[in-house]
């Protein structure tokens, strides 16, 4: 099964990199959408169904924490698993984001296989 993923990050370089890593990791990617902040991500989600959301935390306008809150409040969107990708590895931040509804957390810098494993774990992809 191939999956549709939304990457949300205010850094165009980071979005390109994450997309490239997903492709290189061998993850079965059907489509990849990009958003520059949480507001853009919500716009994409009104138009496109995705299987997973990868999001940064520190972004302008609607940041990652607010995006998680809005996803949790939306009956249509709350079932989409969101994985946070962040440089912040502090225990308090990770705990807060998981409490807000993040299903996974990947700390930058990360290895391609780490991101793939977290995507597959979150999506419940059977281990081969």
């Amino acid at each position: 099964m191939a999956y549709r993923v939304l990457i949300t990050d205010d850094s165009p370089a980071m979005r390109t990199f994450v997309r490239r890593v997903i492709e290189l990791s061998g993850f079965d990617l059907a489509a990849c959408f990009e958003a520059g902040d949480g507001a853009e991500a919500l716009d994409v989600l009104r138009e496109e169904w995705v299987d997973a959301i990868l999001t940064d935390i520190n972004m302008p306008n609607v940041d990652g924490e607010e995006l998680l809150r809005r996803l949790a409040e939306d009956e249509m969107l709350r079932s989409i698993p969101a994985i946070v990708i962040s440089t912040d590895a502090t225990e308090s931040r990770i705990a807060r984001l998981l409490a807000l509804g993040a299903r996974g957390y990947v700390t930058k810098p990360f290895r391609p296989e780490t991101l793939r494993a977290e995507l597959e774990r979150t999506l419940g992809v059977p281990v081969e």
Binding site: T87, D88, T90, T107, P109
Partner: peptide
Amino acid sequence: MICGAVLS
């Protein structure tokens, strides 16, 4: 990334 890793 480096700053976040160092602070963590």
